[in-house]
Design a protein around this nucleic acid. Structure first.
Lengths: 156, 156
DNA sequence: GCTTTCGGTTGTATAGTACAACGGTTCTTT
DNA sequence: AAAGAACCGTTGTACTATACAACCGAAAGC
């Protein structure tokens, strides 16, 4: 776009764009997600996905991983449980913690949501080359990893 | 799967990462923004910035640009006005519309917020090369541009 | 003129979130 | 072992952001 020379935008401009575009995305993601799956709101979806991936994780793990308050997680889980998508089993060795598991219904709904959500993204990104997709994904990972402020986040 | 370009993650994996990481970001952005500038919440900030850039824009323009409901914009503007950051002047030629202008105070607060917000991002991205910053910004722009679903969006 | 359309506000509802206070559990320290 | 600290989760409260629908006033079309 700017020719072959290193006529790059200055750092400030790039940073500004990143900030703005990420923010714009944030707004849309939720609305879109809500539209696609009114039954499984965005955050619940995310948590449910995590629960399935990390079998037997605890509420505190979720809070730490997503930088959410434990009360938020608690309520999200309450919602998921009410919908019958997760089970909370007390851990035998430590009576404080609850081990989380997706139920049958939860796994099913999650799979459906993942499929259609992925389809939406695929559609949106269909013109991207595999190279660009990989590059974009790598940037995002790097960004978010650094953003955790040095939290070890052992589960990923 | 395809095996042809073996060392690259398959499209699905990249897309999945993008979806997940963008979502993760979305959550954090607001919290971070709220922390940095409790006086000027994220959305208000965004709208105020737009108002300043596009001198004399209308509420409907903002709604269209950010894919927000007009009621949302209306309330945001009410808030900004209450804080003394924007003025709404009735357009002389069309008594339905209000032309929006930042006040002195609004411009000042906006500048301050921009500075510190930018600083936060700069800090976060300080280890990135200018190349990577530009690349990341370009990906985001491309993603969001395609995401508007073909809306012409004449103002950008 | 009457009706439709447009710009904006207000009523109502919901998701998502935080912070603070609390109630049990487990671990540490003396 | 008793006392206290640290930890896990819930609940009360409050606030932002958002949508949808119903509405009002102004402008445009027939």
């Amino acid at each position: 776009m700017t020719g072959a020379d290193a006529q790059q935008p200055p750092r400030e401009a790039s940073v500004d764009v990143i900030q703005r575009e990420l923010t714009a995305f944030a707004r849309r993601a939720r609305a879109a997600a809500a539209r696609v799956h009114p039954e499984l709101p965005l955050v619940s979806y995310t948590l449910l996905a995590h629960i399935e991936e990390q079998r037997g994780c605890r509420a505190t793990d979720l809070a730490a991983h997503y930088l959410l308050d434990k009360s938020t997680v608690s309520r999200q889980l309450a919602g998921l449980e009410k919908l019958g998508f997760v089970e909370r089993r007390p851990a035998p060795d430590d009576h404080r913690v609850q081990v989380l598991h997706p139920t049958e219904a939860g796994a099913k709904v999650l799979a459906a949501a993942q499929t259609s959500r992925l389809a939406a993204y695929q559609e949106r990104l269909k013109d991207w080359s595999a190279d660009d997709l990989a590059g974009f994904a790598a940037y995002l990972l790097r960004y978010n990893a650094e953003g955790t402020g040095g939290l070890p986040d052992p589960r990923r």
